[in-house]
Simulated assay, not measured.
Amino acid sequence: MQGYKLVVSIVPKGSANTVMDAAREAGAEGGTILLARGTGIHEARKFFGISISAEREVLLTLVEPEKVRSVLDAVVESGKLNEPARGIAFVLPVDEVTGIVHRENR
């Protein structure tokens, strides 16, 4: 099956559900949430002289090309990604997809 883009969103731990809800309202059918650890300039914090990294959540959302802009805009707004240290979102091309059985039977 072809015709998808992957919206990758990296947000602070605890905000993935809010961002995923907004992506769904904008046309995404769902996604996968992974726990991650940030290593960017804003993530490194010191606690008693020991560097610790902020935990992040990564959302992987397959989206039909015509819905990408609305989903990406919803992710940016709901995740406040225009504010410093809030995260990042980007879109990757997807060459092939399999396993989306509910879509293949339409």
Rank of each mutant, 00 (worst) to 15 (best):
E25C: 11
N17I: 10
K46N: 00
G87Q: 01
E29I: 06
A85I: 01
I10N: 06
G49T: 11
E96M: 10
P93F: 09
V63C: 08
E55A: 12
I50P: 04
G14L: 01
E77D: 15
T98E: 14
D95W: 15
V76W: 06
D95L: 15
S70F: 06
E77G: 14
F48E: 12
V101Q: 00
K67D: 09
G87P: 00
I33F: 02
V68G: 10
F90W: 14
A28R: 06
N17D: 15
D73L: 13
L34Q: 12
V97A: 00
A85V: 06
V8D: 04
D21S: 14
I50W: 04
V75C: 11
A54R: 13
K5H: 09
V11Y: 05
G30H: 01
E104N: 12
E57W: 00
N105F: 02
G40H: 09
G14N: 05
V63P: 06
V97N: 04
F48D: 11
E96I: 09
S51E: 15
R24A: 11
S70K: 14
V11P: 07
V94E: 02
E83L: 14
A89E: 02
G14I: 06
P93N: 11
V7H: 01
N82Y: 05
L34G: 11
N82Q: 13
V68F: 08
D95S: 10
L92S: 13
A23G: 09
G49Q: 09
S53L: 10
S9A: 15
G27Q: 03
E55H: 12
T98W: 14
A36K: 08
F90I: 10
A44T: 02
A28C: 11
R103M: 05
I33W: 01
T98A: 09
K80T: 07
V75T: 12
E66H: 12
L81K: 06
R56F: 01
D21I: 02
T61R: 03
G27V: 05
A26N: 06
N82F: 02
K80H: 10
V71R: 10
L60M: 10
T32A: 03
A85L: 06
K46I: 02
A23N: 08
L92I: 14
P84H: 03
E77T: 15
E77I: 09
G38L: 07
T61E: 10
V58S: 06
L35C: 13
A16F: 07
V97F: 01
G49D: 11
A26Y: 01
I33Y: 07
